[in-house]
Each structure stands twice: as structure tokens, then as C-alpha cells.
């Protein structure tokens, strides 16, 4: 196990390096940040001044080398727009995104898993059909459209929930989060549900598909024949088997929840990472975009590793590659 983790760690460093190279050269192909920064009324030498100050007059490989040496000492560069370290800006925004993603994940699993298993156990029942209908709907509605609809229904028509922003935060167990205040939860409700909806449907479908498949297998028939109760079959035989694909997907999905919360965050003006990076893309704030992408890649590498380990624990048939031969 240790050898496996070590090896994956080394691979991850290589991946991060390759990624930084790709991202850096790709982002340098798009637009010119100076156009977005310098006020058009400025003196003609202002553009050159800014370009010089930000090192944009250097060839790309020189810029990359600077970035790389900086990165090795933990400095991913300063934001062009805010003039502050990219990492600091991201660290400021990260808690907001994290709490949004955690809430969304909790919502997705607590709703999706039981409904999916239920639908899988009674595939021909009316309830199952209704649940699957809902899941189809959940998958089919574009997130942004649903977000806007939610605002109209819950904020404008009913006036129950605030439209946007993050609510009050409170400190609990040393963690500052808006999850610990009523106002904060009110603000969280819509964006978290909005972000979760697709995942609910996904978990539901995976759980149902898995349940269907497992329940049709011989060992379940044996278990039934042995007279085990349904509850015990579900807990001891069904769950471990369907959890594998669900864990994989949920694991990766947690990454996507964080990485792809951009749309939800921009609709609900949620002051998280996604909004920071969308603005950075729009304004071509390259250091932020690069730092963010590398952060996302690192996050995924870690998540994948964790998923693989859990995989191995849940299903002994899948051995970790590092242990092979």
C-alpha cells in the first residue's frame, strides 16, 4: 500500500508539471490581458509599462521558467487584476466553495442513494417509475436555467430565500462557515440544491442500476433461498456491491462540484473559487487561471488516489497496481 501511494505521489508531481506546461502555454495563446487592464485613455507608453511590469514582454518560456521557479518555492504569482498573490486570493475564496460543495454532496447522497436503491429493489413499481421520471428530469434541466427558475420561485414569488451572496458566518470547532448560522443556511439552500440536482439524479441512477444488476445475481438468490431478511440482504450483500461505482463517481463528482461550481456561483453571486476563476477567465487574469487549474488538477489527483484506495478496501478483487508483480 505504501509503495503504491508513494509511486502515485511521484506520478502526480509529473502530472502537475505537465499540466502546468500545457495550461501555461494554452492560456498564453488567448487574448492579451493588457487590453483588459489598461484604460484606453492612458498614455501610449502605459501599455508597454504594464507589459514590462507583469513580465509579459518576455518570451513565453522565460515567463514559464519564472513561474516554475516561483511555484517550487510556493509562489504561484500575483493576480494581474488584484495585485495580490493568486494563492492568497484562492485561499480566501476556498471555504465558501467547499461548504457549497459539501452541502451539495450531502444533499445528493442522502436523497439520491435511498431513492435509487428503492427504485432498484422494486423496478416495476409505481414509486420506482416516478423516481426514475424525476431523475430524468433532474438530468435534463440545464443547471443555469434551474438556478434562475429557483430564484424566481423561491425568492421573487414566495420570498422565502435570499437571492444571492453568502450569509453570516459563525465559528464552530475552529471552522468559520456559513453552515452554522440560520442566515447562512438560508443563503446556502438554493445554490447547494441547484448544484446538487444533477448529482442527485446521477447517484439515483447509479444506485438503481447497481441494485438491479446485483439483485439479479446468483448470490442474492442464494441469500434469499437461505431465508435472509430483505433488510439484511440489502445491508450485507447489496450495499457493498453497489457502493463501488457510486464511490468512484461521487469521489470524482466531489472534485467536479468544487471545480465546476462556476455556473452556480455566478448565478447566485456566491463568493467562491468558481466565481473568482470565471472573472479571471473573462479578465484574462492568467496567474489566477493557472493557479486555479493546478489546484484543481492536484485536487483530482488526490481524490482519484483516495477513490482507488477505497476501491481496494471495498472490493478485494481489485488490487492496487502498485502492488502488482
Amino acid at each position: 500500500m505504501f509503495a503504491f501511494v508513494l509511486r502515485r505521489g511521484m506520478q502526480s508531481v509529473v502530472v502537475l508539471f505537465v499540466m502546468s506546461l500545457i495550461v501555461f502555454s494554452m492560456i498564453n495563446l488567448v487574448g492579451d490581458p493588457v487590453d483588459m487592464l489598461v484604460n484606453p485613455e492612458s498614455l501610449p507608453d502605459e501599455i508597454e509599462r504594464v507589459r514590462r511590469d507583469f513580465g509579459l514582454d518576455q518570451p513565453v518560456y522565460v515567463q514559464y521558467w519564472k513561474f516554475l521557479t516561483g511555484a517550487l518555492s510556493g509562489d504561484l504569482g500575483n493576480s494581474f487584476v488584484f495585485g495580490r498573490p493568486a494563492l492568497t486570493l484562492m485561499a480566501e475564496r476556498f471555504p465558501a466553495t467547499l461548504e457549497l460543495a459539501i452541502c451539495a454532496l450531502i444533499i445528493a447522497v442522502t436523497i439520491g442513494l435511498p431513492l435509487g436503491v428503492y427504485a432498484g429493489l422494486r423496478p416495476d413499481g409505481l414509486g420506482a417509475r416516478f423516481i426514475m421520471g424525476l431523475s430524468v428530469l433532474g438530468i435534463s434541466i440545464p443547471t443555469f436555467w434551474l438556478g434562475l427558475m429557483m430564484i424566481i420561485v423561491f425568492s421573487v414569488i414566495l420570498g422565502w430565500l435570499p437571492v444571492s451572496g453568502r450569509g453570516e458566518t459563525a465559528v464552530f470547532l475552529g471552522i468559520e462557515s456559513s453552515m452554522f448560522t440560520l442566515d447562512g443556511l438560508k443563503h446556502l439552500a438554493m445554490p447547494a440544491t441547484n448544484l446538487a440536482l444533477f448529482k442527485i439524479a446521477m447517484v439515483m441512477r447509479l444506485a438503481r442500476a447497481g441494485t438491479n444488476e446485483v439483485m439479479a445475481q446468483d448470490f442474492i438468490r442464494f441469500a434469499r433461498a437461505k431465508g435472509l431478511s430483505s433488510r439484511r440482504i440489502v445491508r450485507a450483500h447489496l450495499m457493498p456491491n453497489i457502493l463501488i461505482p457510486i464511490v468512484t463517481v461521487v469521489g470524482i463528482e466531489f472534485g467536479t462540484l468544487i471545480a465546476f461550481a462556476t455556473v452556480t456561483e455566478s448565478i447566485f453571486a456566491w463568493p467562491g473559487l468558481g466565481k473568482l476563476v470565471i472573472d479571471a477567465i473573462v479578465n484574462l487574469d492568467r496567474p489566477i487561471v493557472v493557479a486555479y487549474l493546478l489546484f484543481v488538477v492536484a485536487l483530482f489527483l488526490v481524490l482519484n488516489l483516495v477513490v482507488d484506495i477505497i476501491y481496494a478496501v471495498l472490493d478485494p478483487r481489485v488490487r492496487l497496481q502498485g502492488d502488482e508483480e
Binding site: 434562475l148 430564484i151 425568492s155 421573487v156 435570499p162 437571492v163 451572496g165 453571486a269
Partner: peptide
């Protein structure tokens, strides 16, 4: 002062009294 980038969300925030 709060930044709300989306126009429809901004109007909705006013209507909702936020």
C-alpha cells in the same frame, strides 16, 4: 455594497427586498 453580476439576479434581489 454587494456585487451581483447577473442582471436578472440583481433585479430579483431588489424585488425580494435583499
Amino acid at each position: 455594497v454587494r456585487p451581483i453580476g447577473d442582471g436578472t439576479t440583481r433585479s430579483a434581489a431588489l424585488i425580494a427586498g435583499d
